[in-house]
């Protein structure tokens, strides 16, 4: 059995000679193993990064190797939200709604500079990082990230899933946004997260 082939400290197996085809293991481990290897993605592809996501899913890079064969285009049957591309303010409530529709346990990958920080779009229209809207597990840098980078992110996520503890219910609590403002982190924090940095400070003057 696949479980025995990869003995990990988590697996407690009975001697196969006596076991008659059954093993004992920690339930946590078994469940996590199952989850980590069949993460169904919900591609929230908006822009250029979505094209690289398609390339990752296509024949050369073949996401199916990671148990991601099935693209869950319905958020209700998906485990990982892969936000590939920029998220303008007009799309923000849509992203939030899709995240809320996904069942627990769920994870989010923020693919690309735009999804993670707003990237090169530090202007009036673009959300400066989707972590101000939904909680993110893995950030993938790059503009766009190469398919290898996305695959690396998925493997990181698999590692994270393997470390889940069922007793740790807090990790799976649905984040309830503040009903008044719909924000789930304080406004001051959002302003701090979306501050200008690097090159975008001197480049705010038009016409020189």
């Amino acid at each position: 059995m696949g479980l025995i082939d990869a003995p990990a400290p988590n697996v407690v197996s009975v001697e196969p000679a006596h076991s008659e085809g059954w093993i004992t293991t920690r339930l946590d481990f078994l469940v996590n193993w199952g989850r980590a290897n069949s993460l169904w993605p919900m591609p929230f592809g908006t822009a250029c990064c979505a094209i690289e996501f398609m390339a990752t899913a296509a024949s050369k890079f073949d996401l199916a190797r990671f148990g991601m064969e099935r693209m869950g285009y319905s958020p209700r049957q998906a485990d990982v939200l892969i936000c590939a591309g920029r998220v303008p303010f007009k799309l923000a409530p849509v992203l939030r709604r899709i995240w809320q529709q996904m069942p627990q346990p769920k994870w989010a990958i923020s693919m690309g500079a735009c999804a993670s920080t707003g990237g090169m779009f530090d202007n009036y229209a673009v959300v400066q990082g989707i972590d101000t809207i939904i909680p993110v597990d893995v950030y993938v840098p790059g503009c766009p990230p190469r398919p290898e980078a996305l695959i690396h992110a998925i493997m990181m996520l698999q590692k994270k899933v393997m470390k889940d503890r069922m007793s740790d219910t807090a990790a799976r609590m649905e984040m309830e946004p503040d009903p008044e403002s719909q924000l789930y982190i304080p406004p001051s924090r959002i302003d701090a997260l979306s501050q200008q940095f690097g090159n975008s400070i001197p480049q705010t003057r038009s016409g020189q």
């Binding site: 007009k90 779009f121 480049q203 705010t204 038009s206």
Partner: peptide
């Protein structure tokens, strides 16, 4: 439409041609 409006044309006014 407009769910991907990212203000390209506005940003263009703040960048040099090669940028």
């Amino acid at each position: 439409i407009g769910y991907l409006h990212c203000g390209f044309e506005k940003i263009g006014e703040y960048r040099q041609y090669n940028q």
